Amino acid sequence: EPREEEAEKYIKRANGDYDKAQELAKKDGNEEIAEAIKEYKKR
C-alpha cells in the first residue's frame, strides 16, 4: 500500500522514532501519512 510505504520512509528518516516521523509528515503537510504512522505505531 502506498500510504504504508510513505509511512515507512518517514519512520526511516526519523531513525525509527515514530513520534518524530509523525511530526516530519505533518511538517510536509501529509496529515494522512501522519495518521498512517500512528496506526503503524500501534502494531
Rank of each mutant, 00 (worst) to 15 (best):
E1Y: 14
E1G: 14
E1W: 14
E1L: 13
E1P: 13
E1H: 14
E1A: 13
E1R: 14
P2H: 14
P2D: 14
P2C: 05
P2E: 14
R3Q: 12
R3N: 13
R3C: 07
R3S: 13
R3D: 13
R3T: 14
R3G: 13
E4Q: 11
E4G: 08
E4M: 13
E4L: 14
E5Q: 12
E5G: 08
E5H: 07
E5N: 09
E5C: 06
E5S: 09
E5P: 08
E6I: 10
E6A: 11
E6F: 06
E6M: 12
E6Q: 11
E6G: 07
A7K: 03
A7R: 05
A7F: 12
A7H: 04
A7N: 02
E8M: 15
E8V: 13
K9S: 11
K9M: 12
K9G: 10
K9P: 04
Y10K: 00
Y10D: 02
Y10V: 02
Y10Q: 00
Y10T: 02
Y10I: 02
Y10H: 01
Y10A: 02
I11D: 02
I11A: 00
I11M: 06
I11F: 04
I11Y: 03
I11Q: 00
K12G: 06
K12Q: 11
K12M: 11
K12D: 08
R13D: 11
A14H: 01
A14P: 02
A14V: 04
A14L: 02
A14Y: 02
A14S: 05
N15E: 08
N15L: 07
N15P: 02
G16T: 01
G16H: 06
D17A: 03
D17E: 03
Y18I: 05
Y18C: 05
Y18W: 08
Y18D: 01
Y18F: 13
D19F: 05
D19H: 05
D19I: 06
D19V: 06
K20S: 06
K20N: 05
K20R: 10
K20V: 14
K20Y: 13
K20C: 04
K20P: 01
K20I: 13
A21Q: 00
A21I: 00
A21G: 02
Q22E: 14
Q22M: 15
Q22C: 03
Q22D: 03
E23Q: 10
E23F: 07
E23H: 06
L24N: 06
L24C: 02
L24G: 02
L24Q: 09
L24P: 00
L24F: 07
L24Y: 08
A25F: 00
A25Y: 00
A25C: 03
A25H: 01
A25I: 02
A25V: 02
K26D: 05
K26W: 11
K26Y: 13
K26S: 09
K26M: 15
K26L: 15
K27I: 12
K27P: 01
K27L: 14
K27S: 12
D28M: 03
D28P: 00
D28E: 12
D28L: 03
D28G: 03
G29S: 04
G29N: 07
G29K: 05
N30V: 06
N30K: 15
N30L: 13
N30Q: 12
N30P: 00
E31K: 09
E31Y: 14
E31G: 08
E31A: 12
E31N: 12
E32V: 09
E32I: 09
E32H: 12
E32N: 08
I33T: 07
I33A: 14
I33E: 03
I33H: 02
I33K: 01
A34Q: 05
A34T: 05
A34D: 03
A34F: 06
A34L: 11
E35I: 09
E35G: 05
E35M: 09
E35P: 02
E35C: 03
E35K: 09
E35W: 07
A36K: 10
A36E: 08
A36L: 15
A36D: 05
A36T: 09
I37W: 00
I37F: 01
I37S: 01
K38F: 10
K38C: 05
K38H: 07
E39I: 08
E39F: 06
E39P: 00
E39Y: 06
E39T: 07
E39S: 06
E39M: 08
Y40P: 00
Y40L: 15
Y40F: 10
Y40H: 10
Y40S: 05
Y40V: 13
K41C: 04
K41I: 08
K42Q: 13
K42E: 15
K42A: 12
K42H: 14
K42D: 14
K42V: 12
R43V: 12
R43Q: 14
R43D: 10
